[in-house]
Simulated assay, not measured.
Amino acid sequence: MSISVDLRSVVDAIAPARTVTVLTGAGMSAESGVPTFRDVQTGLWARYDPMTLATPEAWDDDPALVWAWYQRRRAMVTAVEPNDGHRALAGWARSADIRVMTQNVDDLHERAGSTEVVHVHGSLFACRCDTCGRAYEPEVVDLDTDRIDPPECDCGGLVRPGVVWFGEALPQNAFAEATARAEAADVFVLVGTSGVVYPAAGLPHIARAAGATIIEINPHETDLSDACDITIRSTAAVAIPAIVDACTS
């Protein structure tokens, strides 16, 4: 896929920027083959509605079912690799102030080499006790079963997935940091996000109000396109390396 925008406008916007903040969504990981929320529902999971598994109520009712489903999701993410977009962002950050935050719950940014990534919707790989909040790193297994007992914490609680479930608030510290990064941005880049999930979709508006130039990378028009100064109708794995090359050459 080619890029339909003159990259000179992008370079002109980024060249004087001290800080570039990047917010990525599902489109960022799509080219790596990360399954969507519903794509996990194959095989024995086909009879379950994912909307009913990602809730506090589901966890309270049947934690073994929910833990098994998230183990399946972790295994599917572990089986894929970061794409050229992930790697280009990580490389760019070695020579510029690039601050990455994501709506995705995968770990592809980190595996590509990005550091201090803010996960506004939590992470599949950052679990915690449902009682005391102690952090746990899960063992990734993919068993052909729809029930796996979650680990127990020393306090007697159960280790739960570290993602934001429907009906839960965003992690307070993570969203506060995301807001601070939006306010600090000279350029704010939206990558592969539909712009319909709030409050994360409000971050570019915060950046714009603070004076940032807003750049959108998405092959499709989104609910945020009208708020962007520059739109690039391409995918992350194509556009990001091209932008990084143009800005660093």
Rank of each mutant, 00 (worst) to 15 (best):
D6M: 00
S123V: 06
F175C: 07
T55C: 09
A96M: 08
Y198T: 03
V141Y: 00
L170C: 03
A126N: 06
C228L: 07
D12C: 00
E139T: 15
T115H: 08
R147I: 00
V196N: 05
A96W: 14
V22M: 01
G25S: 15
R111Q: 09
A212K: 12
L158N: 06
D107K: 09
G156D: 02
W92A: 04
W165F: 10
R74I: 05
A58L: 03
M28T: 10
S194W: 10
V5M: 11
A93E: 14
V141P: 01
P241K: 07
C228I: 08
A15G: 01
H119R: 15
N104W: 08
D130L: 03
T55R: 13
A135R: 11
G157S: 03
T193N: 06
P63D: 13
D223A: 12
D149P: 02
T78S: 12
P82E: 10
T21I: 03
A227D: 14
G211H: 10
A182G: 11
M28H: 14
W59R: 02
T222R: 02
D84T: 06
D229V: 02
R74W: 07
W92K: 14
G157P: 04
S29W: 13
S249E: 07
P150M: 07
E57N: 02
T231C: 15
L53Y: 00
D226G: 06
G27C: 09
A180H: 11
S32H: 07
Y48T: 00
A135P: 04
T115Y: 07
R128D: 05
G157M: 04
A54D: 10
A64I: 05
C247Y: 01
D61N: 14
D223M: 04
V159R: 11
D149K: 12
P171K: 09
I98A: 08
D186T: 11
S2F: 03
I215S: 14
I240V: 12
A15K: 15
A180G: 08
P50L: 13
P150T: 01
A178E: 14
L44K: 15
F166I: 06
V34T: 13
A182M: 13
R87P: 15
N104A: 05
A17R: 07
S225M: 06
A90G: 12
I243K: 13
M76R: 15
P63E: 13
D146C: 04
I240A: 04
A237S: 10
R18W: 04
Q172R: 12
M28F: 11
P16Y: 12
R73C: 01
E177C: 07
G211K: 14
V189D: 06
A68L: 03
L143A: 07
R111E: 06
A126W: 02
C153N: 05
V22T: 02
T145N: 04
G162W: 13
T131A: 13
